[in-house]
């Protein structure tokens, strides 16, 4: 039976990881809303974020802030390349959404292999942004990196809200998600919006990867679990709803952490998939589907 401290500690750990899942889930939503595509290569952006940042820090000796500033646009660029080289040509050739989704899965495997060949299979990590710690409340240890994850997560959600509700491109992206033909008829360049969506989604994945790597590690194959958990988070939240994905991620992260404490690490994924099953059975449109309309309208 876990103690109260262990219980609280697992919730704290789960919140950190859950926010990362949430960010990955939002990445899924951004692309899905703009194009109807589920980008199964979403997890690879998390891996690239951590990997590129680590290489810039360790191999080139860049300071952390500069490494981050370089990593995010580089990974965003990889997202744009994926849209331009894979998704767009397939769409122009009339490929079905299923074929395009399969192509994104193939892209994930390809990028993982290229990363393996280029950087090897050694797990890599880098220091937390703020040295020292952890910060202790009672017996619960809170690493400083968790504050970075919480702060950056909250800031990103706020910035995304501003982007989607207050900017010309953000509103156009939402319009494309609801009726892309009507958006085109008003002069919105839908293909450019897709490019923006992939760049934004990849950047979100990169930020998630940069934030989480100091607390764990990165390697060529970490993208898949992050992708799967981000996908589950997005489904729990009601696929396509950014706020729902974040909440779904938090729920999933905490649930996984509690499962580790209560049942052991082997039950982490069982807990996640059980949660998904329960959600799908009871709420086929996601836990937060009812709030989606209001959230989108804000």
């Amino acid at each position: 039976m876990p103690s109260l401290v262990e219980f609280l500690q697992s919730i704290v750990n789960g919140i950190g990881l859950g926010l990362i899942y949430g960010l990955v889930g939002i990445g899924f939503c951004v692309i899905y809303n703009a194009s109807g595509i589920v980008n199964f290569a979403q997890g690879v952006f998390v891996m690239l974020g951590g990997m590129v940042c680590q290489v810039l820090l360790a191999e080139l000796g860049l300071p952390i802030w500069l490494a981050i500033m370089v990593t995010i646009p580089l990974v965003a660029l990889s997202g744009m390349v994926m849209e331009f080289a894979i998704v767009r040509p397939m769409m122009h050739r009339g490929a079905t959404l299923f074929a395009i989704i399969l192509a994104t899965l193939a892209a994930q495997i390809m990028i993982e292999r290229i990363t393996l060949i280029t950087f090897g299979d050694r797990p890599r990590t880098f220091s937390e942004f703020t040295s020292g710690g952890p910060f202790k409340i009672g017996g619960v240890a809170i690493g400083y990196q968790l504050f970075w994850i919480l702060g950056c997560g909250a800031l990103l959600v706020f910035l995304l809200w501003l982007f989607f509700t207050r900017t010309r491109v953000g509103r156009a992206l939402r319009a494309c998600s609801q009726n892309s033909e009507a958006a085109q008829l008003l002069g919105v360049p839908v293909s450019q919006m897709m490019l923006v969506a992939f760049a934004l989604s990849a950047a979100l994945g990169a930020i998630a990867g940069i934030l989480v790597t100091p607390t764990q590690y990165t390697a060529y194959n970490v993208g898949t679990p992050f992708g799967v958990n981000g996908f589950i988070a997005a489904i729990i939240g009601g696929f396509g709803r950014a706020g729902g994905a974040l909440a779904g991620g938090l729920l999933l992260g905490v649930l996984q952490a509690l499962a580790i404490v209560a049942l052991g690490a082997g039950f982490k994924n069982v807990a996640a998939l059980s949660a998904l099953l329960v959600v799908l059975l009871l709420f086929p449109n996601g836990l937060f589907a009812g709030f989606g309309s209001a959230a989108r309208s804000q």
């Binding site: 509103r171 319009a175 609801q178 009507a182 008829l185 008003l186």
Partner: peptide, 15 residues
């Protein structure tokens, strides 16, 4: 062809 989940103002602004 309205953007039904967007407000009247947002529809007009996207226009």
């Amino acid at each position: 062809g309205l953007f039904s989940q967007m407000t009247v103002r947002e529809n007009l602004v996207v226009g």
